[in-house]
Structures are given as C-alpha cells and as structure tokens.
Simulated assay, not measured.
Amino acid sequence: MNPVRLATQLALCALLALATNACAQEPATVPAPRAVWTWEGPSYAMLESPAAADEALAFLQRKRVNVVYLYADAFERRNLIEQQPQLYRAFIRRAHVRGIRVYALLGSWYLHTERYVLPRHQRKAVAMLQRVLDYNAAAAPAERFDGVNYDIEPHLLDEWEDATRPRLLLGFLDMTAAMMEARRKSGQTLEIGPAMPFWWDGIALEWRGVRKPVSEHVADLTDYIALMDYRNRAEGRDSILSHAQAEMDYASRIGKRVVIGLEFNPGEPAKLSFHGMPEAAFEREAGKVEDAYRGRPAFAGFVFHHYLGYRRFVGDPVPAAN
C-alpha cells in the first residue's frame, strides 16, 4: 500500500475512534437545585443590610445553593414587604444577578400561622399571599419573586389529636384552595407550594367528594411540594428515599414536582438531622438521592432547614456583624 495512503487511513481511523469514544461518554450531569429556608431574623437582616445580603449570597454561591426561600411577612411589629418593598426589590435584584432565585417564604412561629388552617383565620393566609402577589404586580421583572413556599403546619396546634386531625387537615386543604384561587384571580403564574411532612401520605381524607391521601390532595392543588423528609440516610427502611417514594410517584403521574427537605439542626432522635455528621457524609447521602432520581422530572432538588443551621453545619457561621 502507498505509504501516504496508509498514513491517511490510519489518521482517519484515529479520528473515528476519538469521535466514537466521545459519543459513548455520558453527558455531564447537572447537580440538582439546592434551596434553603431563611426565616424571619436572617431574612430581615439581609433585607436591611446590603453588606449582609452580599455576604449571604456569596456563601450560597459557594455552597451551590441556587434558591433562597426568603421570609416575606410580618416580624417584630413590622412588615417590610408592605412598608419597605424597595428592600425586597434590591435584594431580589442582587440575587438574580448571581443566578439565585428567590421564593417568598410564608408562615411563622412568631405569628402562630398554624392557626391559619382554622376557618376563622383562613383569610389571614390569603392576605399574606396577596401581599406577595401585589408586590410582584408592582415590581420590575428582575425584582419579582420567582415563587412562593408556605410553611403552615396544623400538627403544631394544641388541639392536634387523633379525633381532631381530619378537621384540621381539611382546613389546610380549604386554606390552600383559597390561596390558589387568589393566585388565579391575580392573573399571575407565580408557582406556589407548601412545606409538607412526608407522613401525610399515610392519612386518607375525603375532600370535595374524593377520598385519597392528604399528600395527593395537596399535590393536586399546588405546583410543587417541599417535602419535609427529615432523615439522615438515603437508602433502606426509614430513609429519605423510602419516605419520598409515594410523593415522587404521584408527582410523576400528575406532572408536579417534589423538593426534598433535609434537616441540619440538632434534634431527637438523631436520625432526623445531619447535625453532628461530617459534611462529606451528607454529600454522599445527597448524591445517592440524586442518583436514584436522575432523569425524573418530578425531582426538583433539595431544600435545607434552615439558613443558620446549615451555615453552622458546614462550619461557616454568619459573621457577628450580620
């Protein structure tokens, strides 16, 4: 064979081998989104101090947290979203420039919002959402909330007992339906979802003529669920994956999404939280969850409870000045 021709063929074979190998490689996986619940005090501190906001957002970027659930209701006799909406506008602009989305976090121990499931208080739940809707309607696109997460937990009520549990959960569904109706009337498409305990999938209720698990009623009503799946191992019995299975399966069937909520604060029993474990151990367990749900559109990543607890967990506490 002509030496030149042979060299050309060998070069072509080498190029073909390289191309085939490149095509055979799996595409790079995109890490699952990470969010963090940010409660009253830290949220107000970020809103009122540009320096605190920049420091917090830089921390979130370092830890690959790309969604912040920012408290957006009254605290210590002030309600900044009503009284000083420019503070929210400035913070959300800052976050968006860094590629971080901002959800309005509604619900508060300070306001005892667990009572909002009671008929006489449900108008307050609609009013707190309406303030967010009104804010977004008046804000420029770069200053708007990207979504809403509401954390209203009827099981915190003193009257939560086996006998009263169905009534309180029905109140939660009625409250949620009223909030979603307020969104519909506003003409906005802001996505809305609750924080929900994983064990609601074990409670069946009839609501509006349909009997099914409470978790399924909630998924039917809302855009997504932030599932409070507080366990510190991914696999096996009594694990993150086992407790999320029903919600993930149902969300997949109806085209909704589930964010897996994880705990980082001290608590008993120890299985509830990653507190006290190495960060590397947490990342291994989170990686197992991502591997299990890779390619499933219903999986919308993680949300961490909560901003201060997570910062302590990773050994990067909030500076004293903040």
Results as ranks from 00 to 15, higher is better:
residue 8 T to K: 14
residue 18 L to R: 10
residue 25 Q to M: 13
residue 28 A to F: 10
residue 29 T to Q: 15
residue 31 P to Q: 03
residue 33 P to I: 04
residue 34 R to L: 08
residue 34 R to W: 04
residue 39 W to D: 07
residue 40 E to G: 06
residue 41 G to C: 00
residue 42 P to I: 09
residue 45 A to C: 10
residue 48 E to L: 07
residue 51 A to Q: 13
residue 62 R to S: 14
residue 71 Y to R: 02
residue 80 L to S: 09
residue 84 Q to I: 02
residue 88 Y to T: 05
residue 89 R to N: 01
residue 98 R to P: 01
residue 108 S to I: 11
residue 109 W to A: 14
residue 113 T to M: 11
residue 115 R to M: 07
residue 122 Q to T: 02
residue 128 M to R: 13
residue 129 L to R: 06
residue 141 P to L: 13
residue 143 E to M: 12
residue 158 D to E: 13
residue 165 R to K: 15
residue 167 R to L: 13
residue 184 R to C: 00
residue 194 P to K: 05
residue 197 P to F: 10
residue 200 W to F: 15
residue 203 I to W: 05
residue 207 W to A: 03
residue 208 R to S: 03
residue 209 G to N: 07
residue 213 P to Q: 04
residue 214 V to R: 04
residue 215 S to Q: 13
residue 216 E to I: 00
residue 218 V to F: 07
residue 225 I to H: 01
residue 230 Y to M: 04
residue 254 I to P: 05
residue 254 I to R: 05
residue 261 G to A: 06
residue 266 P to S: 00
residue 266 P to R: 05
residue 268 E to D: 12
residue 269 P to W: 09
residue 271 K to L: 12
residue 274 F to P: 03
residue 275 H to R: 07
residue 281 A to Q: 13
residue 288 K to L: 15
residue 290 E to P: 07
residue 298 A to C: 05
residue 299 F to M: 03
residue 301 G to H: 02
residue 304 F to A: 01
residue 307 Y to F: 15
residue 307 Y to V: 00
residue 314 V to K: 02
residue 322 N to C: 15
